[in-house]
Amino acid sequence: MSSLKIKDYLYTNLSTVFWSCFLVLGGAIFVSYYNRINYMPEFDFASAVTILAAASVTAFFLVALFTVSMIMPGVFWVETWAHETGFKNFWENDAGEKKPLLVAGWFWLPIFFWYGFFIIGAIGFVTYALLLLLPVCCFFYFLYKKTKFDKKLFMHESWKFIFTSICCALLAFLPIYTISILMISDIETTKGSSTFVGVLVAVAIIVINLAVIMKRKTHSGAIYYPVLGLLAFFILFSGFEIFYRIPERVMEIYKFGAIKNASVIFKSEACLPLKMQGVIQSFEAEAPCKVSELTILSRLGEEFYIEKDNIRIAINKSDVISWAVSKPDA
Rank of each mutant, 00 (worst) to 15 (best):
Y177L: 14
T178Y: 10
I179D: 11
S180F: 15
M183R: 00
S185M: 09
D186Y: 02
D186Q: 12
I187D: 08
E188T: 14
E188H: 07
T189E: 12
T190L: 11
G192I: 00
F196D: 02
L200C: 11
A202W: 02
V203F: 13
A204G: 11
I205F: 01
I206A: 08
I206W: 11
I208L: 12
L210Q: 12
L210I: 03
A211S: 07
A211Y: 01
V212Q: 08
M214G: 12
K215N: 06
K217A: 14
G221D: 02
I223V: 10
I223Q: 04
Y225N: 03
V227L: 14
V227Q: 12
L228R: 07
L228C: 10
G229W: 04
L230I: 14
L230S: 03
L230E: 04
L231G: 07
F233G: 02
F234R: 00
I235M: 02
I235S: 03
I235G: 00
L236C: 09
S238F: 00
G239S: 04
F240Q: 02
I242Q: 05
F243D: 04
Y244P: 05
E248Q: 13
R249C: 03
R249F: 08
R249L: 09
V250T: 10
E252G: 05
E252H: 09
I253C: 04
Y254M: 06
K255R: 07
F256A: 05
A258M: 07
A258D: 11
K260G: 09
S263K: 13
V264N: 09
I265L: 13
S268F: 04
E269F: 07
L274Y: 05
Q277Y: 11
G278N: 07
Q281A: 11
E284Q: 08
E286P: 00
C289Y: 02
K290V: 07
V291G: 00
V291W: 08
S292C: 14
